[in-house]
C-alpha cells in the first residue's frame, strides 16, 4: 500500500507542472492586458509602458513564468494587478467556500442517492424501481442553472417568497451560512445524485447475483444483514470512483451557483479575474481549481487501493 501511495503521489509532479504551464500560458493569449485597461478605459496613467513595467508585464513571458513558479515554493502566488494585494490572501478566503459548496453537494447527493440506489436494486422491476429510474433520467437532463432560476423565480411569482440570497461567512454566523449554502449545494447535487443512483443500482444488482450472496441467504441471514453487510459493502467500491468523477462536475456547478447566489468563492473570483485581465489572480484561480480535482482524484485512488487490494498490485 505504501509503495502504491508513494507512486501515486509522485505521478502528481509532472501533472502539476503541466497545470502550471496551462494556467500560465492560456491567459497570456487573452487580448489586451490589465495595463491597457487601466490606461485606455480608466485613465489610471498616461504612459502605458511605465505602468506595464510597474506591474511586471513588460518582462519576457518565460521570465514571468519562472518567477511565478518559483514564487509558489515560497508561498508567494503573485499579487493582484488591480489592488496589489497578495493573491494568496484572497485565495485563502475563496477556496474554502468553493470546497465547502462542492463537497456539501457531493455529501448531499451521497446520502440521498445511495439508499435510493439500493432500494431500486432490491426492488428491481417494481413500480418503485420504475419511478426511481424515470426520475433519474429526468434529473440528468435538467441543467443546474435552470433549476436555480426556477427556484428563485417561481415561488417569488406565485407565493411571494424567494429563497435567501446573500452571504454570511462561517465565522460570522454558522447557521445562516449553512442555510445559504444548502440550496445551491442541493441544486448541484441533483445531477451527481442521478449518476450515483445509477451506479449504485447497477453495482448492487451485480453483487446480488454473486454466489457469496446466495450463500449468505442460505445461511439464513436476515435481509438486512445480507444487504448491508454483504452486498452494499462490495457494491460501494466502484461507487467511490464515480464519486471522484463527480468532483469536476461539482466545481462546474459551483462556478454557476456562485454567480447565481452571490457566493464569494473561487468561481466568482475566476470570472472577475477574466473580466479584469488580472493574470496573477486568474492563474492562481485556475491552478487551484485544477489542484482540487487532482487531490480529489488522488484520494479516490488511494481509497480504492485501500479498499480493493487488487488495484495496488497492478
Amino acid at each position: 500500500m505504501r509503495t502504491y501511495a508513494i507512486q501515486r503521489v509522485l505521478l502528481l509532479v509532472p501533472t502539476l507542472l503541466v497545470l502550471s504551464i496551462i494556467s500560465f500560458s492560456l491567459i497570456r493569449f487573452i487580448p489586451g492586458d490589465a495595463a491597457w485597461m487601466m490606461v485606455d478605459e480608466l485613465g489610471y496613467a498616461d504612459d502605458i509602458e511605465a505602468l506595464q513595467e510597474r506591474l511586471g508585464l513588460n518582462e519576457p513571458v518565460p521570465t514571468q513564468y519562472v518567477k511565478w513558479v518559483t514564487g509558489f515554493f515560497r508561498g508567494d502566488f503573485g499579487r493582484s494587478l488591480w489592488d496589489g494585494s497578495p493573491a494568496v490572501d484572497e485565495l485563502v478566503r475563496r477556496l474554502p467556500v468553493t470546497l465547502e459548496l462542492a463537497f456539501f453537494s457531493l455529501f448531499l447527493s451521497a446520502i440521498v442517492a445511495i439508499p435510493i440506489g439500493v432500494f431500486s436494486a432490491v426492488r428491481q422491476d417494481t413500480k418503485g424501481d420504475y419511478i426511481v429510474r424515470s426520475t433519474v433520467v429526468l434529473a440528468d437532463a435538467v441543467p443546474h442553472f435552470w433549476l436555480a432560476t426556477l427556484i428563485l423565480v417561481l415561488p417569488a411569482v406565485y407565493i411571494g417568497w424567494s429563497p435567501p440570497v446573500g452571504w454570511h461567512s462561517l465565522s460570522e454566523d454558522p447557521v445562516k451560512h449553512l442555510l445559504l449554502l444548502l440550496l445551491p449545494a442541493a441544486i448541484i447535487s441533483v445531477s451527481s445524485a442521478a449518476s450515483l443512483v445509477r451506479i449504485t443500482r447497477t453495482m448492487m444488482l451485480e453483487v446480488l447475483r454473486q454466489e457469496y450472496i446466495r450463500t449468505a441467504w442460505s445461511k439464513g441471514l436476515s435481509e438486512r444483514s445480507v444487504m448491508y453487510r454483504h452486498a452494499l459493502k462490495n457494491a460501494l467500491i466502484p461507487v467511490i470512483t464515480v464519486f471522484g468523477l463527480r468532483v469536476p462536475n461539482a466545481l462546474n456547478g459551483s462556478v454557476v451557483m456562485e454567480a447565481v447566489f452571490g457566493i464569494p468563492g473561487l468561481g466568482r473570483w475566476t470570472i472577475d479575474a477574466i473580466n479584469f485581465r488580472d493574470y496573477p489572480q486568474l492563474q492562481v484561480a485556475l491552478m487551484f481549481t485544477a489542484i482540487t480535482v487532482l487531490v480529489a482524484n488522488l484520494i479516490v485512488d488511494l481509497a480504492y487501493g485501500w479498499l480493493d487490494p487488487r488495484v495496488r498490485y497492478k
Binding site: V18, I22, I30, P31, N249, I274, L282, L294
Partner: peptide, 22 residues
Amino acid sequence: QRFVDGWMTFPGIVIALAMVAI
C-alpha cells in the same frame, strides 16, 4: 499524454471560461 492529463484536470466550464476570454 502528460499535457492531456493536465488538460482533463480542469473542470469544463472553468477552462471554457478562460478560453472565451481569449
